[in-house]
């Protein structure tokens, strides 16, 4: 447990919660990133700009922290195929299941939505199982 970083995890998590509160309270939208992205592929009048601004804001927020000594880590140099296959699964899965770690894990669980609790338990359990298998195969 020497990698445990409780305070930065808690502080970062609180910022995610604050972001979700602001977006829902002021604009009536759920801060679920997979849904914010997929909504761009079925554009409706008046439903696009907030999505683009939120996504651009995410990147600007990250950039704004760089002068303070934070950084965006280098991705592990696995084969590009891993990133493509994982991306496809994440895209298909989040569209079918209506959400990801943010939409279900934060906004849904925070509303005590049973669907979101089920989705979160399923994707957590499956991801843990996948990492367990990777560990056994020596791919971690």
């Amino acid at each position: 447990m020497e990698n445990f970083t409780p305070w930065s995890a808690l502080a970062g998590g609180m910022l995610l919660g604050l972001s979700a509160v602001i977006l829902l309270l002021f604009r009536g939208r759920i801060a679920g990133i997979s849904g914010i992205l997929s909504g761009l592929f079925t554009p409706h009048r008046g439903d696009t700009s907030w999505r683009v601004l939120f996504l651009v804001g995410m990147m600007l927020g990250a950039l704004a922290l760089i002068p303070l000594g934070f950084s965006i880590p280098d991705m592990p140099s696995s084969s590009w195929l891993i990133y493509v296959v994982a991306g496809l699964l994440v895209g298909i899965g989040t569209k079918l299941g209506n959400g990801c770690t943010s939409g279900h894990g934060i906004c849904g669980m925070g509303r005590f939505s049973v669907r979101s609790v089920v989705a979160t338990l399923v994707f957590m359990a499956v991801a843990i199982a996948v990492v367990l298998i990777r560990q056994m195969l020596g791919w971690v």
């Binding site: 899965g93 979160t120 994707f123 843990i128």
Partner: peptide, 23 residues
Amino acid sequence: LVFGAALFGIGWGAAGICPGPAL
């Protein structure tokens, strides 16, 4: 819901990346 969450879990466990961190 369940099948989608499971596929998402496979992708998340394989690369360690979900939509928020990716974007």
